[in-house]
Amino acid sequence: MNTNQLRQEIIDYSKEIGVDKIGFASADVFASLKDRLKRQQELGYQSGFEKGSVAERTEPDRLLPEAKSILSIALAYPSRMKDAPKSTRDERRGIFCRASWGVDYHKVLKEKLEKLAAFIEEHMSDARTKLMVDTGELSDRAVAERAGIGFSGKNTSIITPEFGSYVYLGELITNVPFVPDTPLEDGCGSCTKCLDACPTGALVQGGQLNAQRCLAFLTQTKDFMPDEFRPKMGNFIYGFDTCQAVCPYNKQVDVHNHPEFEPEPEVAKPKLKPMLRISNREFKERFGHIAGSWRGKKPLQRNALLALGHYKDTTAVDDMIAVMTNDPRPVIRGTAAWSLGKIGTDEAFAAIRKAKDKETDDDVLAEMEKGLGFATSPTN
């Protein structure tokens, strides 16, 4: 079978297995990306979650010797939740970003790519493949851009004509020399809606992200949330997708092609107070199947405390006092103290002062001082 015929059969097969979009790219070095990554490193804009060296992330043949082509796939996910539960005064809720609704996309895309790899190897005995989804060395977005899946938007997301930027991406490197697709032209033009809407200035300029200021990244960290970002988070407990929500290409997009990506309302918008006392076992049973669980419960509990402070939820004061007093983790105790101060009731301030007398961790004591500082703050 010649490669052109196989190429078309792969496209047809991809539709059979539920791939929304597929493209083909050369496995040449990503030279311009290499320069950008080096610059990001110099500026300290990387998140630290990136895998591999700059060379491994931009030279496909380091990952698969004799690499000739890369297949890029996209699966669309919903932007709207059916029957979304409402947050009430007695039961405030947090929210996971859209990319963490439904089953962990890494697993779903990996299964699709494994089927494509098996299909290629079945039709070409000497074919070799290597696949990856998000956590691999290659940039999913750079591959998708080269493969014509979409163009790279100013919000640093791949924007497809059909599904906007609400797509998951994955790729498969192979030694089979397929004819590549043509990249799409940039479609952002003079629009700056995403840059204007970014609450922290993480989008330094169109297409350039300082991950250290990006709330989507910061919600996944395990240390104390830096002070300047706490008021910006609202009720997000994992991820942040305002830069996608304001994009004109996403305005009318809401795709429900994959049942596994449908959000479970009570998981995607969980009640905040129960998050504070959830056990490891309960956390795994309830959230273990979604992408937002990968860092464990600690960051989500910290973010839940910040969200309760954002709401100034007086019904949560007793729960938060228990956390501040009894939790063995300094980040959680300290964040509880700060958020209690943000809520600002007499009971909350009294509890902080009492706990402060017994606290020995310097970082927690500093957070307690910040919490008590709200007692005299006119903006609290």
Results as ranks from 00 to 15, higher is better:
D12C: 05
D12L: 11
V19K: 12
A25S: 15
A31N: 05
A31E: 15
L33I: 10
L33F: 13
Q40C: 09
E42T: 13
Y45H: 15
Y45D: 14
E50H: 06
P60K: 08
D61F: 10
R62Y: 08
L63K: 13
I70W: 04
I70M: 13
S72M: 11
S79C: 03
R80D: 03
A84Y: 00
A84F: 00
A84N: 01
P85R: 05
R89Q: 06
E91Q: 12
E91F: 09
R92P: 15
R93K: 03
V108W: 00
K130S: 11
K130G: 02
E137P: 06
S139T: 05
R141I: 06
S157V: 04
T160L: 11
P161A: 10
G164S: 13
L172A: 12
L172E: 07
N175H: 03
G189M: 08
L195A: 09
C198G: 09
G201Q: 06
A211E: 06
R213H: 14
L215Y: 04
L215K: 08
L218R: 12
P226M: 04
D227G: 04
R230A: 15
D241H: 07
V246C: 05
D254H: 01
E262Y: 14
V267T: 09
K269S: 03
M275I: 14
L276G: 02
I278G: 05
S279Q: 09
E282P: 08
F283Y: 15
H289K: 13
I290V: 13
L300K: 14
Q301D: 01
R302H: 01
G309W: 00
M324P: 00
P330Y: 00
T335E: 15
L340Y: 05
T345I: 08
T360N: 07
D361G: 05
A366Q: 11
M368S: 04
G373A: 10
F374P: 03
P378C: 07
